[in-house]
Write a protein that binds this DNA or RNA. Structure first.
Length: 426
RNA sequence: GGAGAGGUGGCCGAGUGGCCGAAGGCAGCUGCCUGCUAAGCAGUUAAUCGGGUAAAACCGGUUCUAGGGUUCGAAUCCCUACCUCUCCGCCA
């Protein structure tokens, strides 16, 4: 189980250290280098011993076959065997140490990613749509949502605690319409294959996409079975082909899925928590691509376009920001955030995050492909992007399309999904 | 939950202690032949680690689900875990 290419770290320790610093991560490069050197030392010693054992053992076989005595050799090999066992044990320890260190190594940011520390250093690269003006004070989505009888936060807390909510009547229907609309767009127009995925996955999958060990605290974990609730369909989708060698003509793979997402959001209580913009369970439509390395940055741009298409169709103003190194997630090499404008909150809400992980996830999950028929294996690049997260999209619609009298106009493209309905009212 | 079977290379599938990195088939690749969307013949094709090289070649180690054990030596014997399949039961 690797993360960064060990050879790359060995040869470019300073590059790796700088990248870790830029990301604001802590990972022990020097510790890795020391352990790595120790590992190779042990390997060369133990391999010599094993080579010796292999030759002698073959001779023993020959002697025995000829009915001759081989007791002396056997006694000698017994000693060699013990020695080998000894070194093998040491080797195992060192490798365990190395693997652990590697699992905590973040991905390297791409050279086009701006260096920065926080959210404030992200760079806006695009703005789309006009921010609507209202002749009244626009209400927040939780206000307008309740007014139309579509949102019930109070009873969510009753049943499950804070961070959970009910969608009722028109709210539930609107969400279902949004899900179908998004899936149809991505499958029919953007060429993704729709997939229904498991919502509960094993530790290997979580490690594969990089949620654990680093982000383990944010995940819901079922102890009894050692299974996790997915924080995003990315985990199931990207891990779908883990440990496999894909044939060259099967790339690029473009798959998408709707799923619930579960996040503990540990330590994020406080402000920014009103309404449904930060909750423990929500729905999301997710797109995943598995592509050849050469094309991954082109594919990232297309992926962003696929997510943008949803916002544009819905007529929601948004901006696109490229995340700076410090805001970039552990596993990503480059990431764009799409944020829609919510006039009721007067805030930009992140509804999609589109990332290129390069070969980081592929290495972790040992996902490979053949570069050509009968050719060598290599790690493909993996990407994913939301298309989109439902609660914040819902918030965007409620706040942008509200009327003075407390109704909500349904965006045109959603109407066919709602039996032709045009307005939601209480 | 009960009973049974099984996990081998890109896939299928043989192999019960040394001559097995592993027969055979399929798929792939390379030639030959054939003049016709094909068939035939011959050869060839695992992954990974260490060393080596400008890169190869090359040398060596490991790997037959995983982990432990027996042995001079394990795909092959023993133990444990996990997974898959079949039958029965239960259940949306």
């Amino acid at each position: 189980m690797k993360v960064l290419d060990p050879k790359f770290i060995r040869q470019n320790p300073d590059v790796v250290k700088q990248a870790i610093a830029n990301k604001g991560e802590k990972a022990d490069v020097d510790g890795f280098l020391a352990a790595d050197e120790k590992r190779r030392e042990i390997i060369s010693t133990v391999e010599k011993l094993k080579a010796e054992r292999n030759t002698v053992t073959a001779e023993i076989a020959k002697l025995k076959k000829g009915g001759q005595n081989a007791d002396e050799m056997i006694a000698k090999m017994r000693a060699v065997g013990d020695e080998i066992a000894n070194y093998d044990k040491k080797l195992q320890e060192v490798e365990a140490e190395i693997n652990n260190l590697l699992l905590w190594m973040p991905n390297m940011p791409h050279s086009s990613v701006p260096v920065g520390k926080t959210d404030a250093d992200n760079v806006e690269v695009k703005k789309w749509g006009e921010i609507k003006t209202f002749d009244f004070k626009p209400r927040s989505h939780w206000e307008i949502g309740e007014m139309i009888g579509g949102l019930d936060i109070k009873h969510g807390a009753t049943v499950s605690g804070s961070g959970f909510y009910f969608l009722t009547g028109p709210g539930a229907r609107l969400e279902r319409a949004l899900i179908n609309f998004m899936l149809d767009l991505h499958t029919l127009k953007h060429g993704y294959t729709e997939v229904m995925v498991p919502y509960i996955v094993g530790p290997n999958a979580m490690r594969g996409t990089g949620q654990i060990p680093k982000l383990a605290e944010d995940m819901y974990h079922i102890e009894k079975e050692d299974l996790y609730l997915i924080p995003t369909a990315e985990v199931s989708l990207t891990n779908m082909f883990a440990e496999e060698i894909l044939q060259p003509d099967s790339l690029p793979k473009k798959i998408c899925a709707f799923s619930p997402c579960f996040r503990r959001e540990a330590g994020s209580y406080g402000k920014e928590n009103r309404g449904i913009v930060r909750v423990h369970q929500f729905h999301k439509v997710e797109m995943v691509k598995i592509v050849e390395p050469d094309s991954s940055y082109d594919e990232l741009e297309k992926l962003v376009g696929n997510a943008e298409a949803v916002l544009q169709a819905l007529g929601l103003p948004y901006r696109v920001r490229i995340l700076c190194t410090g805001d970039l997630s552990f596993a990503a090499a480059k990431c764009y955030d799409l944020e829609l404008y919510a006039p009721g909150m007067d805030a930009w809400l992140e509804v999609s995050s589109c990332s290129n992980f390069e070969d980081f996830q592929a290495r972790r999950m040992n996902l490979r492909y053949r570069t050509e028929k009968g050719g060598k294996t290599a790690f493909p690049h993996t990407l994913n992007g939301s298309g989109l997260a439902l609660p914040r999209t819902m918030a965007g619609i409620l706040e942008n399309y509200q009327t003075k009298s407390g109704e909500v106009i349904i965006p045109e493209p959603l109407r066919p999904y709602m039996g032709g309905l045009e307005v939601l009212k209480g």
